[in-house]
Design a protein around this nucleic acid. Structure first.
Length: 934
DNA sequence: GACATCACG
DNA sequence: GACGTACGTGATGTCC
């Protein structure tokens, strides 16, 4: 190596460190260090890549200088220019975070210069060094495939895609951008970048951008002469967004003058020093790699001690039997402190809370259980009462031997909030909400229920008992005998400590064991991304929404209840008169007997239980024959509205907050949809005028407005994309009425002669397709002969052949693999797909529907996860989700800002993972109550 | 606790 | 040729 300074004949290699890390992380399963469980997969991959890189550096083209460049800090000067810069990036996976510093150490261990600078991106440092190298007359190779670096290429600067081993020169850049490197930033400024959240010009992509730049020379010339553009839409876009485009250019333009405290000469290539490298590899416990590098360097393989530090002679995890004797009660701060110390040694802990209620908003914390290793779980009782609930003199005295609640929480708060300690739970949303009541913001978290959901949706439920049984072969201690049931049931704070400790501690241990089993399986099941990006991050978002709740006006509901009561009473009198006697109108059994036995109406069909069917469709048909069915239908509607809504909702108004707090189950629906319970706020009436008025009781708080945003026809749009139906895609692109278009296509009716009835039929068919259409089902829905319905379907398939292909392919895929997948990789298992006979149809239709419904569910999940950051600076809160709709509450005056921000997130929620052929559009409404806002 | 019914997307 | 069917949910009331 020469001692002369960097100049002609020198060759600088700049490695994009972050790219290496992410590639290593995603390429490898989540390995952990054997002695202590530290996640180490990305470091392992990183070292492998560095080693391969060093090995490959021979021959005439070898570098004389080299550095690995890292990002540092999340805030850069670009965030000062534009606060949304990179704002929609997913958070770094929790098991990657602790590995980042280790990759720096790895680089140094390989004796390679390692550089970073606070407030600057790695790309800026790379730009600065590349320009310096060029100015000094040397060459530079940037090892990265990041397109943001392509602006640097030329005059001795090239890029190397290490993955594909492909060099990128000026021509390569032209291939990618349609312009040479000096105009790349102009093209990027126009096209924007959804990954970095660079806005660019709406509707202009790289192709159009390159076209414009090549025509006008450069960006400024283009913007100055924008008036000359022939296409009106494009012209207007450029005029309207000129400032946004200029901002975008500043965002993508790399800073070639980053102040650096080193020079190129400091980057001279150095041979690895075995004394530095081998101890590091040994510390990481990389057996294979250490051996390989030791051989390569011709040194002795160092000792690797990977015996688990915790328990040197501990048997394998699976061998520890469940043993409630090992469960301890923690009753003082010294005992708790030693548990906390252990948590810090390992970096994770399974947590479970015991409370007085399943309703998190009304529940009081009773105790906390912790577990860091099988066999030694503990329970910290906090507010257990001294006497059983059935004690004649049950008092409020606390049981003895418990820690003070405040003391325990103040000791645990730093642990629960520590970003370096992973908190593992089963249905963590529940525990997080309980802790939130105490002002503790639990993070980061893992959730075994959600891991199971990501891996096993469609196979079985994901409750703790089911998972323990199935995956641990263990039956948990049942809660029933402890709490009793019915009227004599007691709350957990009344359970004696000797019973509470084993029950509670076992839950934490089960959770930990499930986690140990599930964590590495996620990767094998290829659902890590689903779990990390669409399940886990949703937990805090939903917890916040549920805790916020929505204001519901009790008086409005109460008045409606009274009105319904009166109407029902009147109807009952009429019904008894027509029927000839009194009976329970709410009893389908009695009604069936009246209609079909006593009154002997036609069309009585008995179901499998022997009772007559009296559903709405049956009564609807009978209504032409007799007046009774209509009266019953009217009564039933009122009865439903009263009992399920106007009465029940009042009971759900939380006395403390005056609001209604639903709970969303994340792992309930197999397709990825959420489900709302206690109360269900996803089925508030809207289809009938009378029911719709119930939404008037859902109101905005004082000085606020409710804003509703809903995806327009999201499932049909997704169908158009997945089944690749050009006519459907075109219709959406043109903003056409999709049902009218289908009708026109199918029934040869021109669009301007469309009748509501023809459109209605087409609409039914469109929905039928999403549900896995059958002639029988469509016939029943449209009340037409089955043969006619079948004719429609045949015609539909003829006009849109892609649909049939999609259905056949999906069924075949499900049979082959036992699951189907959404566009985002969510898997829905289809264990019944092999059914024979009459049941076969069910599983097939479900398999056809699941990718469509599931993809729509994924989209809105992604939007919800990004929403808090997007509306962070607005006085607005997200309140509810109803499958394709999000409801917000916003301070008056900020409605439009909220709509703009939220719509943007929703419409772009598929990016960047999926590029939909059909754009998603979102309709917005606002008002003082939900009836108006929707 | 099963079943029928009906509210929503 | 017959099977019996639209997909996904949750809450309520009746009846056993």
């Amino acid at each position: 190596m020469s001692d002369s300074s960097f100049g002609k004949g020198c060759h600088l290699h700049l490695i994009d460190g972050s790219a290496f890390i992410f590639r290593a992380y995603h390429a490898l399963p989540p390995l952990t260090r054997k002695s202590d469980g530290l996640p180490i997969g990305a470091v392992s991959g990183f070292c492998n890549m560095l080693h391969r890189y060093v090995e490959g550096n021979t021959g005439p083209d070898a570098p004389t200088h080299v550095a690995v460049i890292f990002d540092k800090g999340s805030h850069t000067f670009r965030n000062d220019m534009y606060d949304q810069y990179k704002a929609n990036r997913d958070a770094m996976p929790e098991d990657l975070r602790p590995q980042i510093p280790l990759t720096r150490r790895a680089t140094e261990a390989f004796n390679i210069a390692c550089k970073e600078k606070e407030g600057y991106e790695a790309d800026d440092i790379i730009a600065t060094l590349a320009v310096q190298a060029r100015a000094a007359g040397g060459r530079c190779t940037i090892i990265s495939s990041d397109k943001d670096l392509m602006q640097l290429v030329g005059d001795g600067v090239e890029m190397l895609d290490a993955m594909k081993n492909k060099r990128i020169d000026r021509e390569g850049v032209f291939e990618k951008f349609g312009v040479y490197p000096d105009r790349v930033v102009d093209v990027q400024a126009l096209a924007g970048d959804s990954v970095d959240n660079v806005p660019g010009a709406p509707g202009i992509g790289i192709k159009t951008a390159a076209l414009l730049i090549n025509e006008y020379g450069d960006l400024e010339a283009l913007l100055e002469r924008a008036e000359e553009i022939k296409q009106p839409k494009r012209r207007q876009t450029l005029i309207d967004h000129a400032e946004q485009i200029r901002l975008s250019r500043r965002l993508v333009l790399l800073d070639e003058n980053t102040p650096l405290d080193f020079t190129l000469d400091d980057l001279e290539v150095r041979d690895p020093l075995p004394d530095q490298l081998m101890p590091f590899l040994a510390e990481m416990e990389f057996r294979t790699l250490t051996k390989r590098i030791a051989d390569h360097l011709d040194v002795e393989m160092p000792e690797i001690d990977d015996t688990p530090a915790s328990a040197p002679d501990a048997p394998e995890i699976e061998d520890v039997p469940f043993d409630k004797e090992g469960y301890e009660m923690v009753g003082d701060s010294a005992a708790l402190q030693s548990r906390i110390d252990r948590i810090y040694e390992l970096g994770y802990v399974a947590v479970d809370t015991e409370t007085t209620s399943l309703d998190e908003m009304r529940a009081d914390l009773v105790g906390i259980s912790l577990c860091v290793e099988p066999g030694s779980a503990c329970y910290i009782p906090l507010t257990h009462k001294a006497h059983r609930g059935d004690d004649l003199f049950g008092s409020d005295d606390l049981a003895e031997g418990q820690m003070a609640l405040e003391e325990a929480l103040s000791m645990l708060k730093p642990v629960l909030e520590d970003p370096s300690i992973l908190k593992i739970g089963q249905n963590m949303k529940y525990d997080a909400k309980i802790f939130a009541q105490a002002g503790i913001d639990v993070a980061p978290i893992d959730d075994t229920m959600l891991m199971s959901y990501a891996m096993h949706a469609g196979l079985h439920g994901h409750g703790m008992d089911a998972l323990a049984e199935r995956y641990l072969g263990h039956t948990p201690i049942p809660i029933k005998p402890l709490l009793g049931s019915g009227k004599s049931a007691i709350t957990f704070d009344k359970v004696p400590l000797e019973d509470a400790v084993p029950y509670a501690a076992e839950d934490a241990e089960i959770t930990l064991r499930l986690w140990q089993q599930f964590k590495p399986s996620l990767h094998r099941a290829q659902v890590t991304r689903v779990y990390e990006t669409m399940e886990r991050p949703l937990v805090p978002v939903l917890a916040a929404m549920e805790r916020t709740g929505i204001e519901v006006d009790r008086d409005t509901l109460s008045r409606m209840s009274n009105a319904f009561s009166q109407k029902m009473a009147g109807l009952e009198d009429e019904i008894y008169g027509v029927a000839g006697r009194k009976f329970n109108v709410g009893s389908p059994k009695q009604l069936g007997e009246i209609l079909f036995d006593e009154m002997a109406l036609e069309g009585g069909k008995k179901g499998k239980t022997g009772a007559y069917a009296t559903g709405a469709d049956v009564l609807e048909d009978l209504a032409t024959e007799h007046e009774l069915p209509r009266l019953i239908l009217d009564w039933r509607q009122l009865s439903k509205l009263k009992s399920t809504y106007t009465d029940a909702l009042q009971d759900h108004i939380n006395p403390d907050t005056g609001r209604v707090h639903t709970s969303y189950s994340i792992a309930g629906a197999s397709t990825g949809r959420l489900a709302s319970t206690d109360p269900n706020l996803q089925n508030i009436p809207i289809r009938t005028e009378e029911g719709r008025r119930i939404r008037e009781a859902f109101v905005a708080g004082e000085g606020k407005t409710l804003v509703a945003l809903d995806y327009s026809q999201i499932e049909l749009r997704i169908l158009a994309h997945i089944a690749d139906i050009p006519a459907l895609k075109q219709a959406f692109a043109d903003g056409q009425d999709i049902h009218a278009m289908t009708a026109s296509e199918m029934f040869d009716v021109p669009m301007d002669e469309m009748t509501p009835d023809v459109r209605r039929r087409a609409k039914a068919i469109n929905f039928g397709v999403i549900y896995g259409i059958s002639g029988f089902g469509l016939a029943r829905n449209l009340r037409i002969p089955r043969s006619e319905a079948q004719g429609f379907i045949d015609r539909y398939f003829e006009r849109f052949p892609g649909i049939r292909t999609y259905m056949d392919d999906t069924k075949a895929f499900a049979k082959e693999n036992g699951y189907v997948e959404t566009l985002f990789g969510r898997r829905i298992h289809t264990p019944n797909i092999t059914d024979k006979g009459p049941r076969a149809g069910f599983a097939q239709r479900a398999a056809i529907n699941a990718p469509i419904q599931g993809t729509a569910a994924d989209v809105i999940r992604r939007a919800m996860i990004r929403m808090p950051a997007a509306i962070r600076d607005l006085p607005a809160k997200m309140l509810l989700q109803v499958h394709d709709e999000l409801l917000f509450e916003v301070e008056q005056g900020a409605e439009d800002d909220l709509i703009t921000a939220a719509r943007d997130v929703m419409e772009n929620a598929a990016d960047p993972v999926v590029k939909l052929d059909v754009k998603l559009t979102v309709d917005a409404g606002q008002g003082a109550n939900w009836a108006v806002a929707h």
